[in-house]
Each structure stands twice: as C-alpha cells, then as structure tokens.
Design a protein around this nucleic acid. Sequence first.
DNA 1: TTGTATGCGTTATCAT
DNA 2: ATGATAACGCATACAA
Lengths: 338, 338
Amino acid sequence: MSSIRSTKSTIRDIASHAGVGAGTVSRVLNNHPHVSDSTRAKVLKAIEELNYRPSFSARQMRTGKSQVIGFITDEIASTQFAVNIIKGAQAVAWDYGKLVLVVNSDGNRAIEYEAIEMMLERGVDGIIYASMFHRQAQLPDSIHEVPAVLIDCFLPDRSLPSVVPDEFGAAHEATEILIRKGHRRIGLINLGGEAKPAIEGRLAGYTAAMQAHGLYDPDLIVHGGDEGAGRHGYASAMKLMKLTERPTAIFCAQDRIAAQAYRALHELGIAIPNEVAVMGFDNHIDVATTLSPLLSTMALPHLEMGQWAVEYLLSGAGEPLEPVQVKLPCPYIERQSI
Amino acid sequence: MSSIRSTKSTIRDIASHAGVGAGTVSRVLNNHPHVSDSTRAKVLKAIEELNYRPSFSARQMRTGKSQVIGFITDEIASTQFAVNIIKGAQAVAWDYGKLVLVVNSDGNRAIEYEAIEMMLERGVDGIIYASMFHRQAQLPDSIHEVPAVLIDCFLPDRSLPSVVPDEFGAAHEATEILIRKGHRRIGLINLGGEAKPAIEGRLAGYTAAMQAHGLYDPDLIVHGGDEGAGRHGYASAMKLMKLTERPTAIFCAQDRIAAQAYRALHELGIAIPNEVAVMGFDNHIDVATTLSPLLSTMALPHLEMGQWAVEYLLSGAGEPLEPVQVKLPCPYIERQSI
DNA sequence: TTGTATGCGTTATCAT
DNA sequence: ATGATAACGCATACAA
C-alpha cells in the first residue's frame, strides 16, 4: 500500500516534520508530564505519518538499559517438558516490556561462560540461569556484574537468589495423601542419577510422613539405578510386589518410573488403582496422560519457577538482589491412579 | 580475587592505557590487517588488564548490525517435543556468533505482531517465525523489513522462504517400508484438527504408495476426529480390527494415535508386532520410547528445520533472501513395533 | 512548555 | 601503521 518508507526516520526527522525540537519528540515518546496536548498531538501525528520506530540501541547507549534479559539453560531438550520454565520466564518478561535472549548450553560449561560474556556485552538487564533438574550449579564470577537469579539449582556459596521445587514438602504431601486414602504399606521407588537434592528431598519427605504415622519400613524403599529415564522402575516394582507383606500403594519419584511400574503391575495382573495405587512425580504430561489409567502425580512448578525468577529479577528496581532461597510448592494433580 | 574493576572501561581507557589511539584499539578488536604486531600486543595486554568488554549497543549504532536474531513461535508448549526447532536454530546462530531473542505468542496474533515490532526496534539481523505444526501463517507487512524465514508454515503469497517437513514423502516411505516387510493390508489412522498440510500430505503419501502396489482400499483409511492428542486412536484401531479382512499393519499419522492404538490392540489380545505391526509418525520421544514394544516411527526433522532456517537466513550476506520453499525429509526411526 | 547542545562507545574517514 | 575526528540516534541538562 504505502510507498517507499524504508523505516529510516529518526527522532529529528519527525521533529522537523512536526515543527518542534528533537527534545520535545523524545519527551512525548517517554510520556513526560510537561508537554502541551497540542504539540503532543502534532508529534504523534508525525510519528504516524513517517512510520517512525525508535532505535533501542541508541536508547540503550543513553540509558544503559537494554530492556532485554538473558536466559541460560543447560539441557532444554533432555527433559523437554521443562520448557515451561522458559515459557513462564518469557511471559513475565513480556509483561514488563522486555525480551528474552535464550541460549542452550547442552551442559557445556564453556558455552555457559561464553554465553554470560556475550550477554554482558549486549548489556542485558539481568540473567537467569536455569537447570533442568534440581542440582548445584557452577558459574563464573562475572555473573555478579548483573542482577541474576537461579532456577532449579543453587550456587555453592548461595550468593545468588534461587528458586527450586519444594522436594521435601511434595514427597511428604504425596505420602500423606496416600496414607489418608487408607494405605499403610506404601512403597517408594526413588530416582537414580545425579539429581541429589531431588533424590534426598523426596526420600526425606516420604520417610518423615511414614515415620510420623508409624508406618516406616526400609524394605518398602527401592533406590534408583543409573540407567536413566526411569528404566529401573520395572524391576523395582517387581521387587516391591514380591515382598511378603506387599504394598498397596507405590510412590514413584518420577513419572517415567511410574510408567515402567505400570508395565510391571500389568504383567502381574495387578489392577491400578484397585489393588495397587500409583503416585507419580513430575507431571510429565506426555507420560502421565498417555498411561492408562491416567497417572495421579505431583507437578513440578516449572512455569511458576520461570515466572518467579523474572518477577524477582525485575522487582529489584536496580537494587542488588537479596540472595533468598525460595522453595515453590508442587501441586497434587489428581487423575485416576489412586 | 581482583579489586573493584566494575567493568566500566571503554575503548579509550584501554587506548590511553596502552599508549595508542582509540582507532588503533578498534582495529585490533576487529582484526584489521594493517596493525603492527608490537602495538597489537600492547593493546591486547591493556584489554586484559583493564578487563575490557566491548559495548555491542555502541557497535550496533555504528554498524547497524545487532548480532541478534529474533525467533517467534506460536505454541512452544502444546507440542513440547518441538522445542528442538528452537534448539537447532539457537545452536546454528551460536556458531555464527549471534544470540537469539525468543518470544512465544501462545497463538495470539496481536502478540506476534507486537513481537515483530519490538524486534525491529531492537534492530535484529533477521527474524524466524516457527509454527509448531505445519500450516499457513499470517504475518504483518513489517516482516519484510528484515530478512525472515518461516518454519513449518508458509505465507499465502509465498513471499518468504520456508522450510517444512516432507509430509508426502514421509508417509509414502512409511507405507513402502510396511509393504516391503510383506504387509498387504495396511490401515491408516489419520490425524484430525487443523493441521491441513500434514493431514493431506500424509494421506496422499499413503494413498500413492498403496495404489502403486495395487493395495489401495478406502476401508483401510480412518479419518481423525477433533478430540486432539490422538484420542481417537483407540476407537479407530478398534474399527480397523473389526474389518472382515483386517489389516496386519497400522500406520498411525501421529505417535499419540499409536499410543491409543496400542491400548486397543492390547485389549484385543493382539500382539505387536507379530500379529499387527504399528508405524508411528512424529518420533514424539516421550511417547515412542515409553510404549512397549518401543514404537517405530517417522521422525519430524525439528532440529534440522531450525538449523536450516538460521543457516539460510545468515547465508544471505545481506542480500534479499530468495523465497524458496524447502521440504526436509523425515527419517525412519526403527525400533520394535514393525 | 519547549528548543539546543552534549555525550553515551564505537567504527570509519581522513590525515599523517 | 597509526592518531584525531565525525557521526550513528537518543535522552537529558540547561537555557529560554
């Protein structure tokens, strides 16, 4: 439709077009209080006519703020359901009028360090570092040159604010839910691998609940192997079912473990949830809603952690961020397996 | 360890520190040919000592290039396995020394338009728009102000280059594979919903292969419903199995459909793959590798599309991009269900 | 209320 | 080979 407006107009072009000074244009652009309605209208009209678009790089040079935040993650792909962290972070940033620079490191520390360097060069207003599973992180000193928040991980010296799932509370609640349903013999198939805080937190939460009700029995606990993807779930469930006093409920510390447990129970001809109830953990949507019966599980608050991180990052109005360590609750998702 | 270097040094600071002119520093920074080794060394040393870090916003003001590319996607979450598109795009951008600005629109067109506007304000070097399923897209005119590439979708007027999966070829090959295994009666459970190109392409590929071998029979085709998530797979498989001349293989146009078909076959006591082979589509990793037996399927080239898009975007050395329409092959992933 | 001038950190042009 | 200087587009301090 329109002609050749190659989007090249500057603040001065619209100034002369509107017959005002450059400063005035800047003022209306930034909604300054002291500018008459008539001139504001003229300027707005000129902006419209010349198809003006402000240059954020120029603006950044003056103000020092880029309106961009950096987001670094270690393994965006391995636990794909965790993209909700990014989604939550980006959505909140958007509400603040900011855009998000995303880099996936694939767990390569050199890339993470360089990513931080590149973001600093771009003058990001803040950086968020997200791990895809709860663990301790290691970051370069330069991270402290800008406001930063950690998701699903923490620094050895706790010098940065972080938000993680409340593993203990979630496991405790999951166990309580099962107990409330009348179960006395509740097995736990824990996860393996390097997610220490998750492994220990979930075990502790389960243990505390069981002990509080005088139900604790170490035979009911199966520790995870390192095969990954919950592949030990099958053998673990089999083992649990061979107990003389076999459990009437199994708490799987991961939905993928639950999927394998389902398979074992199925082969044994044991009905879920009538003979044995199964509780998952993660709310790994592709797994939980593909299983039959649908899996009841504790949801990891991915979206919420992403939101919290950006919210906290941006709330700090430039002040140095208090290095709080926040634990977010994991809601129980009731479906059909309990 | 070091003192109070608050990372504030500019090109001039290091110039005076090294006892040279500002221009010289810029030259070594950009690897210009005509600079003596001795001065280069001095400058490098000063850079090191003052912990200098270039300002990309200042650089962008001069050069006009931001070294950033924008990535807009409609539904990052609904088909979460498609994050590989982002992963592939970001990885290639990284290799080019560029960072990626990501915004998820949740399918909201207003957000998409505004995102493009914001990216233009930030002077991105290019924009990639990715749909999470193969369809026609609608974008504002302003998208043409910068190099742009489409993923998994296309514009009505084909004015932008795009990369999509070769739906026809993939379905054709999937069917051929089944035929080669000796199957004559091959059922197709197609998908429902609004992914027109995928629905039609897969149907056409299947049909072409069946006809080429004189195996075509419309009774073998079940069209998908709109329940989503492949939930019609169960009923469709049941229907197929009730045929007088029932199929010995089922081609499911989506892994989630296959998951439901598994359930149906299971209930019917039909063994996979011995009595009925099952071919999936998507290589939806959480589904395909959770099922038992593991699902053989056609993989959507998500990662490759992301890579291709950025590669093509950046290859154009500033020249306007030729609006080619590329179809990428979908590799067959052999597992246990065939 | 509004116009003018200055400087943010670079790169590029022009001397030398 | 290298140093001085202008200009990129904007926000702000200062003047009017």
